[in-house]
Design a protein around this nucleic acid. Sequence first.
DNA 1: AATGAATGAGCCTTCATTCAT
DNA 2: CATGAATGAAGGCTCATTCAT
Lengths: 213, 213, 213, 213
Amino acid sequence: MTAQESPRTTRAERKKQELRREIIDAAFDCFADLGYHATGISDIATKLGIGHGTFYRYFQNKRDIVDHVIDDLVARIVTALTAENAPDAVSTLDAYREQTARIGDALAQIFGEDPRVPRLLLFEAAGIDKAMAARVLDFFELATELTAAYLSHGVELGYLRADLDIENSARAINGMILASAIASLRNPDPEEQRRVSEAVRRMMYDGIAARRE
Amino acid sequence: MTAQESPRTTRAERKKQELRREIIDAAFDCFADLGYHATGISDIATKLGIGHGTFYRYFQNKRDIVDHVIDDLVARIVTALTAENAPDAVSTLDAYREQTARIGDALAQIFGEDPRVPRLLLFEAAGIDKAMAARVLDFFELATELTAAYLSHGVELGYLRADLDIENSARAINGMILASAIASLRNPDPEEQRRVSEAVRRMMYDGIAARRE
Amino acid sequence: MTAQESPRTTRAERKKQELRREIIDAAFDCFADLGYHATGISDIATKLGIGHGTFYRYFQNKRDIVDHVIDDLVARIVTALTAENAPDAVSTLDAYREQTARIGDALAQIFGEDPRVPRLLLFEAAGIDKAMAARVLDFFELATELTAAYLSHGVELGYLRADLDIENSARAINGMILASAIASLRNPDPEEQRRVSEAVRRMMYDGIAARRE
Amino acid sequence: MTAQESPRTTRAERKKQELRREIIDAAFDCFADLGYHATGISDIATKLGIGHGTFYRYFQNKRDIVDHVIDDLVARIVTALTAENAPDAVSTLDAYREQTARIGDALAQIFGEDPRVPRLLLFEAAGIDKAMAARVLDFFELATELTAAYLSHGVELGYLRADLDIENSARAINGMILASAIASLRNPDPEEQRRVSEAVRRMMYDGIAARRE
DNA sequence: AATGAATGAGCCTTCATTCAT
DNA sequence: CATGAATGAAGGCTCATTCAT
């Protein structure tokens, strides 16, 4: 972080990291556009204008790179969700609603901005192999935990139902977010996405039943 | 030749249909267990104890069979959802709640009974190719329409919120069902599934917020 | 040949021979149209509306049938060439010229009428395998002998050059006939074929050189 | 890097061209020996001691290589025919006869030296598929044009018959050459080939008829 | 360090042939 | 005798990976 880096970070080292980064990005493009199986290592290399042998100096094999691509994606999403949105940052239901909206916006940002993100994560990744399917499940579980933390905080402070099944409600909420992402694959229109988000939030706070007077 | 025999259904014809059915089932097993790409035609044939050339007497190619496997799956699910559960069969909120529970049970039946069903549908199918990804999106859209029909009926009869965004609420609900299915992949325990379903239903009817006095 | 055939020739036997004949004809059609390798046994059977298993009750295998098709073709050609055209039927150069013209017409009849005949014989047969290539060479040799018989007769009677290299001249003449057949593949116009035949005959009798006065 | 080296022809590039050449030659061997259909890509690769995958770095597919093999053959033949034998290089009948003999020798060189050349061109090529059959016909047509050019020149200069049907006579002559080639397949003896050529030339210049006093 | 030529495991698919019905 | 369902050898082709330059 200082101007004078550790002796480890020579210029060559930095260039290497840079190319490594570029390979991950190019691989993301290819996997999302063509699909994992339809993507050849040469597609990735060609997109970068490097020899495809070079690829193997940076990543073990095709399976290795996709792991890094997914790592990258997951990190991006988790970062977006946690940045300035710690569960304990709010203490009233209204503030909570606002926070929910902020998180929704952040997710919409990521998923809506580039449909390749949900496509790769939801449609490609799990089909790659057993291990990756497990990772995807892990990711959903992680998302459940994140969401559960918010719910848990809300219950503790009393602005969420005391008898809430926190974990499974978190799953349900994430399912709705998932549905938003899938909807954005069909219809990338931002306005439409806003409406889906709105419907999700109303589901959370008002349910679907008519108010009994 | 007997009166008993419809001219269309000779014994040979019946045997043929039977094998066709078995191939679809074996293919379902393989695709769900190994994944589409890792499955060879020979895996399917070997599982049935037939020559792999025989496969090609029943299906055009590998791509063809997976389409039929998915057809089969979708048909099974749609049947389960619509059987005895027409949207207009109920006219009160309580009856609606009961219907919702029945549908949830039916889905749980299908998804929970055999985790290979959601795995293939959610994790494998979309990654096969562009066309199949489109089919999966179509399936979600179909599910949205089915669900929307229930909501629409409820709004008309006044037991659901008049200002409900029907289509997007349907999406949200289906997202929660999706989440249940995914949860069942991790934890196939029926009791756990029941709890997820319960959480979903409470989300739908009560929301998450604490009751304001 | 009598009305009351030998006890061998029952009605069933005759029907069998008939079908055998039809199979040969259908095979000829297929081989000439699609080529030997591109033709499947099922193509032949389908064309006749019989099961393809039936084929094997009449012919050993695919290689067997093509032999019979070629037999048939060769027999047809030899018959056309020898019918009413025995080498010793003429005794003057003019009569010989006329005979040559008659033979040419007969060949034109066979080759020109149906371009599939030369196509199969010249373009398909030799490429089938070593044995068939040898048969094609044998056929050329047979044609050489037939032609040589005519030349030989002419030399004996003094209306052809005494120093004629009979065998190789026969080859040369057959080469020209071959060229006519090939020309007919490109341009099946009968008038054009007549002109090629005419050019061949002038080559034979007048050569190409200008007359020295 | 040295001045000696054209920028286009690096050593690697040269090696690549060399292997490409070797593959064409090996393919020629295989196609001529085994036939096109009986030849596997692995036969070609094995003959060169390379992996069969390597083949596909140099040629699109099996159909691609045979096109190049034929290209090569046709080019070799056309070169042999045109080298030092321009139609307008001679102006008397005697010189023309000599030229004819030279051309005949050149063809005998190509066809006689290696019987695989006529075998591939005449016996294999046309049977490969429709497109290749058309190419073979095109080749005959090209040969007709080449020969016709010689005849045309001779007519103009008056040493060939003024009423010669140039195009069809060219076809007839090429037919005789074809016959020579076929004869060489049966009997590769050079002396025999010389005699066939002689017979062809006598046919061209003297015809077969006895001299009328 | 970068390159890309070489490799071969492995898969899909065809079709001639057999044989039970 | 006719049929066509079943078979599996055979072969074209792809592409991830290695390694000499």
